[in-house]
């Protein structure tokens, strides 16, 4: 069984469910992906499939990648990723993978993508710190305050929350429900939000129980 597939986030919308409630959904164009390579336990130490998504002109592919993808014979792709697979002997190189091969409506999955970059953010925005007093003569408002004790231990402990890059980082959201599957259009509607901007390539994976 194949445990994941690649998709492209198209944007958010809403739909009505059977009860008439409004459900916020993210629409993701999923696949079709093609199996480029099989990783086999005896040779590679683990079982997995390498899949390709979003086809690419042959003039844009360099020689090593060209030779690699030629073995599948399904053209060239912008995104090559590995997905887990229970039994790779059931899958052939070059095989097309569609949504229905991996997921069905109502399933709970996890989605991985690169979150929107927010740049260098202060501690209030990045970690939700409360900031410092706004009144009583306070001159600093959004700074972090003390970052530790004095002579003991005489250093700042590791992983102290400070200002820095926020977003533009790989994020996995678990527990996302598949609300709708449109096989013919290669679309899925996922409940709620998914990391990244529109056009972001996201990985949809099975959620282990």
């Amino acid at each position: 069984m194949i445990k994941g597939i690649l998709g492209k986030k198209l944007g958010m919308s809403q739909i009505f469910n059977e009860a008439g409630d409004i459900i916020p959904v993210t629409i993701v164009e999923v696949g079709p992906c093609y199996v480029i390579q099989k990783k086999i336990k005896e040779r590679d130490g683990y079982d997995a499939l390498q899949i390709g998504f979003v086809s690419k002109k042959s003039t844009r592919v360099n020689k090593p990648l060209k030779a690699h993808q030629d073995r599948a014979g399904k053209g060239y792709f912008y995104h090559l990723r590995e997905v887990d697979c229970d039994d790779v002997s059931l899958v052939d190189v070059g095989q097309e993978i569609k949504i229905a091969d991996v997921f069905s409506k109502g399933e709970t999955i996890k989605v991985t993508g690169i979150s929107k970059g927010k740049g260098f953010a202060g501690v209030v925005r990045r970690h939700g710190f409360g900031g410092l007093p706004a009144s009583h003569g306070s001159l600093i408002l959004r700074e972090t305050g003390s970052i530790g004790t004095a002579t003991t231990p005489g250093r700042v402990i590791k992983n102290k929350k400070m200002a820095g890059q926020l977003g533009n980082k790989q994020v996995t959201i678990k527990g996302i429900t598949i609300v709708d599957v449109q096989e013919d259009k290669h679309l899925v509607a996922l409940r709620g939000a998914v990391p990244g901007p529109k056009g972001q390539i996201v990985m949809l994976k099975k959620q282990e129980v």
Binding site: L10, Q182, L187
Partner: peptide, 12 residues
């Protein structure tokens, strides 16, 4: 964006 548009229109 057109795909999202079509997705919404289909439910109208």
């Amino acid at each position: 964006m057109n795909i999202v548009d079509a997705f919404e229109k289909a439910q109208m």
